[in-house]
Design a protein around this nucleic acid. Sequence first.
RNA 1: GUGGGUGUAGCUCAGCCCGGUUAGAGCACUUGGUUGUGGCCCAAGAGGUCGCCGGUUCAAAUCCGGUCAUCCACCCCA
Length: 427
Amino acid sequence: MKAARLHGFKDIFHPETEKLRLVESKTKEVFERFGFSEIIIPILELSGVYSTGLGDTTDIVQKEMYAFETKGGEWVSMRPEGTAGVVRAFIEHSLYRKSPVTKLYYSGEMFRHEKPQEGRQRSFNQVGAELFGSSDPLADSEIIAMLWLAITELGLSDHVELELNSIGKPAERERYKEALIGFLSPKKDSLCENCQNRLGTNPLRILDCKTGTCREVTSEIPFSIRDYLSEQSSEHLDALASSLEGKSIPYRLNPRIVRGLDYYTDTVFEITTDKLGSQNAVAAGGRYDLLVERMGGPETPAVGFAIGLERILLLLEKTGTRRNSPGKKQLVCIIHIGDEAREEAAKIADDLRRKGIRVETEYENKSLKSQMRKANRTGAAYSVIIGEDELRKKVFSLRNMRTGEEKTFPLKTLADLRGHGDFRKLL
RNA sequence: GUGGGUGUAGCUCAGCCCGGUUAGAGCACUUGGUUGUGGCCCAAGAGGUCGCCGGUUCAAAUCCGGUCAUCCACCCCA
C-alpha cells in the first residue's frame, strides 16, 4: 500500500494550522459576544437528515455526498454542511422548549465530493451560526452584523462585499420562476448550453451565469424577484436593509443572488470577493423559516450562515492581511556535551517545562557547534549550555542568542526559576 | 460529468523542442573549516524507480501511445 491521501483532501501543517485555528477562534470569540454558544454535532448523520434538510434535488445531495451503508444497514452520510445537523439536534433535544430563542455556533470539517480546484477541496472547514425562534428582521440584522464584525476583525472588510437579496417564500419563488421561464424560453437559443438545461431544472441559476450572452439576455429581463415578493417578504427585506444602515453595515442589494440549498426563505446573503477566482463566496447564509418543520419539528423561524475557513485564509493571503498571532513562547535550548551532561540536560528540560517554559534539547550526543546551529535555526531566545566543565563546577552558561552575551550561573539558579520571564532578568 | 495545463531530489524548478558519457541548480539536511559556541562565508556528504506501463530506437528524462496523479477552468458551492 502506497502512502497517499485521497484526492481533494489536504494535510495541513504548521504554520497553516495555526492560521486556521486563529481565524476559527477569532470568529468564535465574536459569536460569543453576541450570546451564541457552541454546539458540537456528529460528522456522520443518517442520510435523510441531509436529503430532507437540504432538498433531495440539490446538487449537494444528488451528487456530492459521501454516503454509504453501515454494517447495521443504515444509510449514512458525512456532513456536507452544518445547518441540517444543528436543526436535527435542535429538534431532537427539544431546544425550542427551553427558551424562545436559541443561538448556536459550530465549527468543523465538511465533506463534498466535488472536483477540487482553487478554494474548493473535498474536505473543508466551516464555522457557522444559527439563530432559532425569531422571524423578526432584527434577527436577520443581528446575524449579519455578527458575520460582518467577524469579517471586520479579521481585517477583511475592505476586500469583500456583503450582497443581500430576498428569495421570498416558495410560492412567490414559483411564480417568479414561471415568469422567468416564460421570458427566457423564446430566447433559449442565445443561452449557453448549461442555461438551456437550467431552464428546465433551476431557472434561478441562469441569473448567476457568467457567460457573456447569458448576461446580455438576463440583463433585459424587465422584472426581478422583488416584483414577485409578497408584501410581507418585501417589508421584511426593507426593514432588514434599514436596520443594516442603522448599524453602518455596507451592503449591496443583488436580486440575482440564488442559494444552492432548498431550505432558504426570504433573506439570503453572501460575503463575496473578486480575489478568489470563481470561488467568490467566503461566507453565505440566510433565513430558513420552513426547515425546522420540514425536518419534523415545530414551526420555527431561523436564520444563519457559514464561513469557509480555507477561503478566508486564501483571502488573507492574497490581500496580504496579517493577523497578529499570539505567537509562540520564546524558546530555550539546552545544549549538552558528554553523556553525563546529556542526562542532566534532559532533567533540566523536564523541570523547566513543568514551569511553563518552552524548551528543546538534543536527544543524541552532537557537537556543540551543531547544537548551536540548531538553536539558532529554531529561533531560540536563550541557550543553556552544560558541558563537562560546567557540570564539575555545578554551573551552566546562559547565552542570549540575540545579543550573543554569555554568563555563568550556578545550576540551582534554574531550579529556582519560576517562568520564562526570569531568563530576561538573568541576561 | 466536460475542457486545458503539469508530473525530474524533502521543497521550488532547469534539462525535453534538436534522443547520446556517472541527470543538474537553489533552498533545506548532515559533517567539517584545530580540542566547547549559532547567524555570514567556504568545503565535503547524503538524498532521484526522471509518476507508472508499453512502443519506436543501437540508445529515451527527452519522441509516440496509454494510464494514474495533480492543478486550473466550467459546473456547483463556503
